[in-house]
Computed example of a mutant assay.
Amino acid sequence: MKLKSKNAQFLFITGLLGTFTSFSALTMELYFGLYTSQFLFFVIYLALNMLGGLIMVYLGAKIGGKKYE
């Protein structure tokens, strides 16, 4: 993928690095739940993140009119 503008390159890099930090924070919180034996916290946090993410993707696709078939 070749990005033509410098602003697009900065936007892409910022988004890419942001995903790494967000995923690291999610993983660390889940690890904390397991490490401290807070299994209910672990299950609820994992379920809310995964289901919430899927719901948001679905809504975004629905609002944006994007169809995947």
Rank of each mutant, 00 (worst) to 15 (best):
L48V: 15
F41Y: 13
M50H: 03
A47M: 05
L34R: 03
F12D: 04
L16M: 14
E69T: 06
S22Q: 08
S22R: 08
G53L: 02
A47V: 09
T21M: 12
K2M: 14
F39H: 11
I44N: 03
M1W: 10
M50I: 11
I13C: 04
L54N: 04
V57T: 05
F42E: 03
N49Q: 09
Y68S: 09
S5R: 08
L54I: 13
E69H: 12
M1A: 15
K4A: 15
F39A: 06
F23L: 14
F41M: 03
Q38G: 03
I55L: 15
Y45M: 08
Y31R: 08
A47Y: 01
G33R: 00
K62C: 00
G52W: 02
N7W: 02
S22A: 11
L17D: 01
F41D: 00
Q9K: 15
M1G: 14
L16D: 09
L40S: 10
I44T: 09
T14S: 13
A25F: 12
I13L: 12
S24M: 09
I44E: 06
L51D: 01
T19E: 10
F42G: 00
V43Q: 04
Y45W: 07
Y45I: 04
L54P: 02
T14F: 06
K67M: 04
M28E: 14
L11Q: 08
L51E: 04
M56C: 13
Q9E: 11
A25S: 11
Y45Q: 06
Y31N: 01
L40I: 14
M50T: 15
F20I: 13
G33M: 01
F39C: 02
N7M: 10
L3S: 03
N7K: 13
M1C: 06
L34H: 05
A8T: 05
G15W: 00
K6N: 13
G52H: 01
T19G: 12
I55C: 09
K62L: 07
G60H: 02
T19A: 07
K2P: 06
Y31K: 06
L11Y: 09
Q38L: 12
